[in-house]
Design a protein around this nucleic acid. Structure first.
Lengths: 203, 203
DNA sequence: CTCCTATGAATGAACG
DNA sequence: CGTTCATTCATAGGAG
């Protein structure tokens, strides 16, 4: 939801001059850095803080926002995983020794030039059925989730509907785990030193 | 990649009614109601009972289950919180060295000038956006992430198979048989008489 | 110009 | 609850 008009108007200096494309596109330098982080450093799970830092630095090379960095990592991870998964399906029972880098994280592996299934190949058939079977039994009878309690910051007791006053569910999880208590603050110092990353994009 | 069965772009909307996708997609009316509850009434913490009732009413506008409502609220809350926290304690100061040996690191200081469009940030932000419907691009304001403690950094233990298919809802009432005590009395009258809440798309 | 691919973006679902 | 995964939508840019 939140389908808001994403007119880059807010930003005086958008990427492109006159609203050409509303979509962010990484500039070569930005791409180089991002790839460097991901492949060379194996940075696949940047924390929000790191994302901000990365974003800040990338701003030197062009307009960019946190979400762009966020999505970039998310997409890259997702796509790599997706392709790997497909491979597994293809080589079902097969003895093909696909010598792929196979998620060689924290090392090299940036030579991931997965290029298969291009142009009508019969195999690429992925069945997205993880034997769900009964699709979870959350019937209408009442699927309870973790509802912490009936006190928040301010219960407005909105009478959206009469609750009969009768407590139907008197036993929910009540997961009272005071989770989210990290408190820790470890400054990670990424000392990247790569200097070669085909600025000429890939392919 | 693989050929994605994309909508033939018939209607403006693109909701694969039922049977197509495994994933639930709110129909415009449902979305309107949900948003109305969340933004208009500030209803952000529905109890299990309320979730069921909401779900029940939303079924008039399309297939939907409890968990959908539950997730919808959860996601909206989470995302909204992310955006707000983004502006707070922007303690950058990490040592993220993004200078990959090239391109003069004109690090003229990391002035945290995250130019986020909507920097309102207030406690009562229940009027975030209700602009959708005119499918003319979407995108969001322009900010995500939040800064919290970081716990996983070098770990990238990717589970071979996330494997889900487990009943997310632990369970529900087990002995409260009285749940159906209001057989015909279930006058769940939600005040879903919201005003215009951007509601276009296909219906 | 049309078709196709790569990829940014959005969001439902799920994990810990 | 915050974060991550999975799936899908939409579009810029290249090939034909």
């Amino acid at each position: 939801m939140e389908l808001q008009a994403q007119q880059p108007t807010e930003e005086g200096g958008s990427i492109q001059a006159a609203g050409s494309s509303n979509r962010w596109a990484p500039t070569p330098p930005q791409l180089r850095i991002l790839k460097g982080l991901y492949y060379d450093k194996g940075f696949k799970y940047p924390t929000p803080e790191q994302i901000q830092e990365i974003c800040l630095h990338l701003k030197q090379y062009g307009q960019i926002e946190d979400k762009n960095v966020f999505f970039w990592f998310q997409n890259l991870k997702a796509r790599e995983r997706q392709k790997l998964k497909e491979f597994r399906n293809v080589r079902v029972g097969g003895s093909l020794d696909l010598n792929f880098g196979s998620t060689s994280s924290t090392d090299d592996g940036r030579s991931i030039d997965l290029n298969f299934g291009s142009t009508g190949s019969t195999s690429t058939d992925r069945s997205i059925d993880l034997n769900f079977g009964s699709r979870v039994g959350y019937g209408v009878d009442g699927s309870i989730m973790e509802q912490r309690g009936e006190y928040h910051q301010e219960i407005e007791t909105l009478p959206l509907f009469p609750m009969h006053g009768e407590d139907i569910f008197d036993n929910m999880k009540t997961t009272s785990e005071g989770c989210s208590g990290y408190g820790g603050d470890s400054r990670i110092s990424l000392e990247l030193s790569l200097n070669s990353y085909g600025d000429a994009d890939m392919a």
